[in-house]
Design a protein around this nucleic acid. Structure first.
Lengths: 125, 125
DNA sequence: GTGTTCGATCGACCGATGTCGATGTGTGTG
DNA sequence: CACACACATCGACATCGGTCGATCGAACAC
C-alpha cells in the first residue's frame, strides 16, 4: 500500500486504521494479548488454549489475525509455534488514536526508520 | 456494570474494552471522528452527510454508536442535532490500550472523579 | 391549519465474523 | 516404517454489522 502523506484523510486511510482497531475489537483477542503481555514470555498455542476457554482452532485463528496486524510475532520451532507480543507496535498504537483525532500530522512517527526495523500495525513486519 | 478492580482480567472486562475498540473499527466512523476533530466545532447530521459519501440513515447510525461509546456528545436544539467530539474520552483512550497490555493497574485513571464529571468510553456520560 | 425540513427509526439485504469439529500437514519419536 | 503430537486449515453454522431506501415524528415556516 502506498502511504498517504498529504493532508487529506482518505477512506483508504480510514480503512487501514479501522483495521488496527478491529483487530482489538474482540474479547478473545484482548484476552490473548493481555495474557501474552502479563506472562512476558513467548507462549505456544496449547498453553493459551489451556488458559482461555475456547477451542484450539479458534485460538489459532485469533493469533493469525493478531499476527497479520502485527500485534504479535510468531517463531516456529519444531512442531511448536511461539507467539510473543510485538512491543514496538504497542508503543506506537496510542499514536494511531491521536492520528485519527487530528492531533498528529499525517506523517506519522513510525514512518521514521528505527534500529531493529520500523513497524506499524497493518504492516507485515 | 460493576467495575472490576481485582488483578484478574475477566472476559467481561475484555468484552467492555473490545467494545471501545470496535467502535473505532469502521472506516466511516473513523472519518466522522476525524472530521469532527479537524473541524473543531459541533456539526449536524446534514453537514456530515454532505462531506462523507454515505446515506443519512447510515451517518445517523454511526453517530449513535459513537455516542453510546461516549466518543462523541450530542446536543439537540430544534430539529437539529449538534454532534461534537468528547475530548475527555479521547484523552483517556490511549490509556485503554496500555491497560490491555498490562502496563497499567486495573484501577484506571478514569476511575478518579474529575471536575465536570468522569468519563470513559463505554459509559453513558 | 398545511407543508417543509431535519434526523431517528424501521425493515431488508448481504457480506463479514466468531465459533466449533473434523481434517490436513509437517515434525519428532520409537 | 508406523505412530503421536502440535498446529494450521477447512467446512459449516449462527450471529453480527454496514448499508440503503422508506417511513415516522418533532420542530419550524407560512
Amino acid at each position: 500500500m502506498t502511504r498517504n502523506t498529504s493532508r487529506n484523510v482518505t477512506r483508504g486511510d480510514a480503512t487501514t486504521w479501522a483495521g488496527w482497531f478491529r483487530a482489538l475489537g474482540d474479547p478473545t483477542r484482548i484476552l490473548i494479548l493481555h495474557l501474552l503481555a502479563t506472562e512476558g514470555r513467548p507462549m505456544n498455542v496449547g498453553e493459551i488454549v489451556d488458559v482461555l476457554d475456547v477451542g484450539q482452532s479458534t485460538v489459532s485463528h485469533h493469533l493469525s489475525i493478531l499476527g497479520e496486524t502485527c500485534f504479535v510475532h510468531v517463531e516456529r520451532v519444531g512442531t511448536a509455534s511461539w507467539w510473543r507480543i510485538n512491543d514496538r507496535c504497542l508503543a506506537c498504537f496510542p499514536s494511531a488514536a491521536e492520528l485519527i483525532m487530528g492531533r498528529l500530522p499525517l506523517t506519522v512517527p513510525w514512518d521514521e526508520p528505527v534500529a531493529g526495523g520500523a513497524c506499524a500495525p497493518g504492516e507485515g513486519c
